[in-house]
């Protein structure tokens, strides 16, 4: 963690990050796939051939390649392609909202905890400990049983789950940054704590924050899918990749396509996020271990 002392200008680093990305095929492919997934999700209403939630019993369990139903239909005659595309909207939006919320709370908590130390630090870190000592899925199921399954509740739980990751990593970096000469110098010339945090410390932790965001989004999407799969996530008829697997599990023998396509979509996006995260970590913060 010695290279943090160099403090390169942010804009320059960003630019070179783009250049690095474009030169690295291992990172370009997942970045491209994610870009395509986001565009498809945003454009889903323009692209889908059928209403994703409307049952059509005349066209039940059509195999892939049927005219008008490229990826086939499910047991209620709903178009799989349309549902996979609409599922992308929910899955990506939930994952995105979860990392933004967890990131904001976690980075703030980490900055405050690491910079000020003392009682604040103790309290924040003990809360994190308690949370890590309960298996997440069980916690999520209990909370959802209590407050009811809904999209906002789901996002809330995913934020609850993931802020700890940000807080711990940011805190450990701030603990070191705090003692560096330029931070002490800033303090000596009378800069306020808030200013020091924003101007001198935040830019230094940014790299790790971006890298863990990629991993965390993957984890959040897996968690959303798992909860939806267990029936505690997004409720029917809304399609998400996890809920599609749940509702079609019974038709595994007669209609593999109802399960396989959402499974592929989910796996490809999560794989892309993980590979991109690996690359970002190497590019931005070699000290960060997973």
């Amino acid at each position: 963690m010695t290279q943090v002392a160099a403090q390169p200008a942010m804009s320059k680093r960003r630019k070179s990050l783009w250049h690095k990305l474009l030169r690295n095929p291992v990172a370009v492919l997942p970045a491209l796939l994610l870009g395509v997934a986001v565009i498809l999700a945003l454009a889903a209403p323009l692209l889908v051939p059928h209403n994703p939630d409307l049952p059509d019993l005349a066209h039940r369990l059509l195999p892939p390649g049927s005219p008008g139903y490229g990826l086939g239909t499910d047991s209620l005659g709903r178009d799989i392609l349309s549902r996979v595309l609409y599922g992308a909207r929910v899955s990506l939006a939930v994952g995105g909202a979860a990392v933004i919320g967890a990131g904001v709370i976690g980075v703030l908590a980490g900055l405050v905890s690491g910079y000020f130390g003392g009682v604040v630090d103790d309290v924040i870190m003990r809360i994190a400990d308690v949370q890590l000592s309960v298996p997440f899925l069980l916690l999520a199921l209990v909370v959802i049983a209590a407050v009811g399954p809904s999209l906002p509740n789901l996002v809330f739980i995913l934020i609850l789950r993931n802020w700890v990751t940000y807080a711990r990593i940011v805190r450990s970096q701030v603990l070191e940054l705090r003692t560096l000469t330029y931070v002490e110098a800033a303090r000596a010339i009378g800069e306020t704590d808030g200013r020091i945090l924003v101007k001198h410390i935040l830019p230094q932790v940014w790299g790790s924050v971006i890298a863990i965001t990629s991993f965390t989004m993957a984890e959040a999407m897996i968690a959303e899918a798992s909860l939806s799969f267990l029936g505690a996530g997004v409720q029917p008829p809304t399609a998400t990749w996890g809920s599609m697997l749940k509702e079609n599990l019974l038709y595994l023998a007669t209609g593999w396509w109802t399960v396989v396509f959402p499974a592929i979509a989910l796996t490809v996006v999560i794989l892309s996020l993980n590979i991109l995260g690996d690359w970002l970590r190497d590019a931005l913060d070699p000290t960060l271990q997973r």
Partner: peptide, 22 residues
């Protein structure tokens, strides 16, 4: 390992059932 870390448990479970049982 990259693939292994990216396939959710339930996706893998479903695929295994599809292949080995069904």
């Amino acid at each position: 390992t990259a693939l292994g870390q990216s396939i959710p448990v339930f996706v893998l479970g479903v695929v295994l059932v599809l292949l080995f049982a069904v």
